[in-house]
Design a protein around this nucleic acid. Structure first.
Lengths: 206, 206
DNA sequence: TGGTTAACTTGACACTGTGTCAATTGACAC
DNA sequence: GTGTCAATTGACACAGTGTCAAGTTAACCA
């Protein structure tokens, strides 16, 4: 019985999570209240609190739920399988760049909650540190190939690449500057290659 | 009479602005309430509303006040006087990089208010577009010199440099990664030069 | 001296959104 | 029938912003 309920696609908890993701996506992560989510899920506001103790916890759970649906690990597989540092860097940027638009609504809500809520901040930092690992791996692959430009230490290059790829930058380039996702990926690759790859290797690649 | 009051250093309005800047600086822009500002200025909460109709208006006024004190225009003079594009780019990053830490508290408060308050959003966007002009000028100086790497259009390079220099990136590199202001300026210059300056000109510079 | 005015104070209150609590309903299981 | 579980309803505490009205203080002015 219990296992049926917890695996039932239309169990209330799942419905809340799905509506949360949907509404946050629609609203760009802004101005979504507990009551809005409840109404969308067809239940009372208080029922939401029977499943999630706070808004922050709900946002965190929604993020995890979305990650399951989107299968992050599989998306990163091509990058991990790259045969050299430059390719790894490019594939990582590609995976991340196509991932951001799909999580943006939920990410933005978490990003906003982060400033007033410690649980949200912890959850967000956690995810961003995981993203940093990918950056470090790409930079270290470059380094191992002898492709990292000599000005950089792997440490500083990792910090810089990580920062470049943060959500607010994607937000600025797409929402403010009007770039498409394709443009974002293209120019971030250009930026990263010019910034981190030693000239000789870059020529070779062309 | 009126002119005496408005030029008096210790007039209430000015005292509110000065305390606002000071407290926001101390608190990193977070969790500062109208009552806190009033108490610091030695007046009642309501008296603050006699001078500023809303928290957003106060934040905007505080930003302007701080700009007057810090004399932004003078700080940018060296960049404008640069004899070539590369120098202009470097001096602009230097000016901006030493400016951010001084405005960070107020900027952060405005950045947080931006998400719920249209007036704050408008004020912030205004400032950031002004900052973008500086970026465009630097990129165009590079372009005029023939120093802009051929991968870029001036337009896309401007968008990218602008985004790189946004406050959240400074925040991440200093507060999360632990970089000093000197390191920030050094590595952002490295990043910008590698990213935007054509190799031949970069060699020449060294 | 007494009156006017402007700056400020005091205290109450409306509003929004989160989170809590207690009493109640309806369904299903045993 | 009785127990249990999910959910409902409505009331409420709390924080912070912004509003309102009545009262104080002090300076200036005739």
């Amino acid at each position: 019985m219990l296992y049926i309920m917890s695996s039932d696609k239309y169990d209330t908890r799942t419905r809340i999570l799905e509506m949360t993701v949907q509404i946050l996506e629609e609203q760009g992560g802004r101005g979504v209240r507990m009551g809005d989510i409840a109404r969308a899920a067809g239940i009372s506001r208080q029922a939401v609190y029977l499943h999630f103790t706070s808004r922050a916890e709900l946002l965190v759970a929604a993020t995890r739920h979305l990650d399951d649906v989107l299968d992050v690990n599989q998306r990163l597989a091509p990058s991990r399988a790259a045969s050299n540092g430059i390719e790894r860097l490019e594939l990582y940027i590609e995976a991340w760049g196509s991932y951001i638009p799909e999580i943006y609504g939920v990410a933005k809500a978490l990003l906003l909650a982060k400033d007033t809520d410690d649980a949200a901040a912890a959850a967000w930092n956690d995810r961003m540190l995981a993203m940093r690992d990918g950056c470090r791996a790409a930079i270290e692959a470059l380094h191992a190939d002898g492709s990292l430009a000599p000005e950089w230490t792997p440490e500083k290059a990792t910090d810089t690449l990580w920062t470049m790829l943060l959500v607010p930058n994607w937000e600025n380039l797409t929402l403010e500057c009007g770039w498409s996702t394709q443009q974002y990926v293209h120019w971030m690759k250009t930026l990263a290659k010019r910034a981190f790859v030693v000239e000789a290797k870059l020529e070779y690649q062309k």
